[in-house]
């Protein structure tokens, strides 16, 4: 099932495992617990539509961790560095999405959970928000912070973070550039359309993180070694107590009617200005004047 509405878009092949050993962070007792939700996305530069069949051509398209999620993870890891925290990464997707959870753990996350189940296939943002919030509640009913990237680059909706805040009934702060915490309160800078706001609140909260935040760290070799040792449990709809009617296609109010290739704008005048830059400048100037500028 192809999902254009912004949820999870692939087919699943089931194969759910359970269990896994207790996460490393759990041993630390009362440390802050931060959950980071990450998504595996196709590198959208290379996704195309087959004009004859109107279906996605995904062959050979590389899958990556959603770039915005890397920034969300980095903010969580910075808080861990500064204050000590357990950082849990959660992803919803096919079994192969496990690789981004390992990558996140190699960078410093303590543990990860993969939500994977045929029942989730075709989920739009409502059904995705529901499934993820159920998983968060199972990981910890009272986490301190839940981070998302601003949006995923395949669906581009920016709706799942806010949706999860609604299901968890946590305050929501979007477009976060930096996070400071002190006691039970947070102070964040957010990138709004007209400038930067500074916002305060009490934890818990859901935050979505923009790219202006600090540059994500690389995974160390040691990190990879450590990450490989930790089991990543795979949870299905039943494991997180999700009602089938609210999952996947059944739980999705939005339906895709059709997909098609975008209209192509055909280029206009072309000229070679390599030998005659004067003529090129003249042409630009004329067009600017025709449009009422310059």
């Amino acid at each position: 099932m192809v999902d254009m509405t912004g949820g999870v878009f692939f087919c699943f092949n089931g194969d759910t495992e359970f269990g896994g050993r207790p996460a490393r962070g759990q041993e630390r007792g009362k440390a802050m617990h931060i959950i980071v939700c990450i998504k595996q996305v196709p590198d959208t530069t290379n996704v195309r539509i087959n004009p004859e069949t109107n279906t996605l051509m995904r062959e050979g398209v590389e899958s990556i961790m959603n770039p915005f999620d890397e920034y969300a993870l980095e903010e969580a890891l910075k808080l861990k560095d500064a204050h000590g925290a357990r950082v849990t990464v959660i992803s919803m997707g096919p079994p192969q999405a496990e690789v981004i959870l390992r990558e996140a753990m190699a960078r410093g996350a303590d543990d990860g959970v993969l939500l994977t189940d045929r029942a989730f296939a075709g989920a739009d943002t409502l059904a995705t928000s529901y499934a993820i919030s159920q998983a968060i509640k199972k990981v910890n009913a009272h986490p301190d912070l839940v981070f998302f990237g601003k949006q995923a680059i395949d669906g581009d909706t920016a709706q799942v973070g806010p949706g999860v805040s609604e299901f968890l009934n946590f305050p929501l702060v979007t477009y976060v550039k930096s996070v400071k915490i002190s006691g039970g309160t947070f102070t964040v800078e957010t990138q709004m359309d007209e400038g930067v706001d500074v916002i305060e609140g009490n934890m818990p909260a859901v935050m979505t993180v923009v790219k202006d935040a600090s540059t994500p760290r690389f995974a160390s070799l040691g990190g990879w070694m450590e990450a490989k040792k930790t089991a990543i449990p795979r949870w299905g709809a039943k494991d997180v107590g999700a009602v089938p009617d609210m999952c996947g296609l059944n739980g999705s109010p939005t339906k895709v009617v059709k997909i098609f290739a975008p209209p192509t704008k055909t280029g206009g005048t072309r000229m070679d200005g390599r030998d005659e830059p004067d003529a090129a400048v003249e042409a630009i100037l004329k067009m600017l004047q025709d449009k009422g500028v310059a």
Partner: peptide, 19 residues
Amino acid sequence: HQTRPAFGGNIMATIMTPN
């Protein structure tokens, strides 16, 4: 009928909310 780009604009999708 709600039409939007997806996959970085490589694809357009028309979506509706029937029920």
